[in-house]
Nucleic acid binder design. Structure first.
Lengths: 199, 199, 199, 199
DNA sequence: AATGAATGAGGTTTCATTCAT
DNA sequence: TATGAATGAAACCTCATTCAT
């Protein structure tokens, strides 16, 4: 049944997060999923296909948890934006301590190697940025910015988060991410009034 | 002579930038350096040792070019800071178009796998942040911030740059980096006005 | 099936006897077993593991053929002891002419390099000595010796056999072993009566 | 000068004793002798030639120390014989604890691989046996044995010593050698009188 | 007499994938 | 569906030896 396929994906996901695509061998995956080689190749044509499937699965989960539930909540844009930042910190504090961002890790590893991965991961970031853009639209003054500019701001927010996560992984210190997120709040604040942010 | 060692390092560096550590095979390196296996192991005890040596070499070059020449120039802090941001954009526009940051790529790939790489790369980022901190000290208002806070701001600047480079690699679009850097300027600008942040 | 594993072991055994552990390359083994590299590593985690497995296999065969069938036969101790000595000569005359003792060869090669081999091979010799001790118990006058002393005598018999086999390999002359075994008979004879052996 | 050649030989000898011929790499030897590759190949045409030279060197030392000084002393045959056995024990107790006999180790490792080593080592054993034979000639009753038989007895003594050393290396216990040597004494005793040894 | 850089065959091992059952 | 045996290319590394200086 298709459940087995999902099981394999779910077993592989933490390995890809922890070790990356290349560092993760098929044997690692088979051991984690507790299946044989034959079964794997029944569900996936290759390790590569599994890799993409895992990204898509994590994208689905990410969409549900953050993009829909948090960023899509029936609240003000500011509230949704703030909740997102809180969610990011929480996720990296408990779910994957200092292991980096699943998407960011793979984006850096694979974007230069393979267009399939690159396009998929770019779509993840772009979708995320779109939902942030939705929230920004609702925040005073940023709402007045030209749409393109606001979209770029949203992308920059994603980039800043990824930068903070990278630093957290490198320093092995979650405070790097927290500081980056504080900087994001301050940056967004500059768009809100004529006077500087006074948080 | 030791020149050959340097040659190998220089031949390997672009491969590590483009493909990462794991994706780069010893054969790739041998072909790029046009040497035989035995010769390689005459100069390096292992591929791993070469990896660290390449990072150190790039760190040396980076220190000379950016940290000393640009960030260490006899100018105002603001001028040095601005020149650094310009340098980063220029470097990623011509030297390694959309291939990511040598240090950031390896940091994400290796920090979770190996402490040797992690510590070395963390030192790169930390050194960079220190020189940024020096510049920030010279910028009005940020100079008044508590030292620890300013140091964290410097680290955040590094993280934001890395985030922008990551996005550039993912989107294959240098504008991602340019936008991130514009955001950095705006962020730093918030520390310069008469309406100071009073958090 | 596990038969293949046994096949590999049986193909490797004569190589290890003839050339020793280090002189035998994996390629030699693959050629002898007529398998590919991958298949080998499907059955064994390493060459080292195969080495130990071959020793254990030969130990099993040795136990069946000599320790159980010959030294464990329902005969007098003297008859069992004599049959053992005959068996040893016969084995080295036809099975492995002048190639040395499988266990002795590896013991000398590996005991100083690796504790796994050493302990395993020591156990082979010790088990052998125990069965000899059983036979000696049944031989008049040696039966009266203190148990420890008799046990040491049994170990010495093993050592003398190994010494004779070593000499046979060095001289390429089975008579070296035959003479050593004659000496063993004479030595044991000194424990049997009040009058010395007069051959 | 030729001194350097001797230095290399002396540096290599303990390595060959400890690790055997194959386990010892040229690099090991160069490091131990503190010389470069060029210098090595100036003095020796190959690792193989060095191996033979080391055996010959040890044979020379062995001849001086044991064959000439001890077995060639102006004493009775019995005294020389006893002194030899004492010397063997002493040598393996302090000089090379439980590392085996230099000649026996190499004989087992190389005799099946290479005739050069085999013949040289056989000559070592045979020369030793000749000197033992000289001593035995002087011991009552063994002196009456047919020359060939006595010569074989001498060879057996060598084989028993080697067997005891092998057991010592395998058990990591010098008592194995001591017991074997006690057995030699007992065996020789049987040739000396009409009454059996009653120790 | 000496250096150590260069060579390249061969060492053990890992890997993603295929295939017979 | 599922198994795991089989494949072979390629991974990293070691080695004895040669060669230019």
């Amino acid at each position: 049944m298709a459940d087995k396929r999902q099981e394999i994906i779910k077993a592989a996901a933490p390995l890809l997060l922890e070790k990356g695509y290349m560092h993760t061998s098929l044997s690692d995956i088979l051991a984690a999923a507790d299946i044989g080689k034959g079964q794997f190749y029944h569900y996936f044509p290759s390790k590569y296909a599994l890799g993409l499937a895992v990204v898509e699965h994590r994208f689905t989960v990410f969409t549900e948890q953050l993009l829909n539930n948090v960023l899509g909540a029936p609240k003000t844009g500011q509230a949704r934006f703030d909740a997102m930042l809180d969610w990011v910190i929480a996720a990296h504090q408990k779910c994957s301590p200092n292991q980096g961002c699943f998407f960011g890790n793979l984006a850096l590893e694979m974007s230069g190697q393979d267009e399939g991965f690159r396009l998929l991961l770019m779509r993840v970031f772009e979708t995320w940025a779109e939902r942030i853009d939705d929230a920004l639209q609702d925040i005073s003054n940023t709402a007045d910015a030209p749409p393109d500019e606001r979209k770029q701001l949203a992308r920059t927010v994603v980039a800043m988060i990824e930068g903070g996560i990278l630093a957290t992984k490198s320093y092995q210190d979650i405070n790097m991410l927290k500081t980056s997120i504080a900087a994001i709040r301050r940056l967004i604040g500059t768009y809100k009034s004529n006077c500087p942010p006074t948080e």
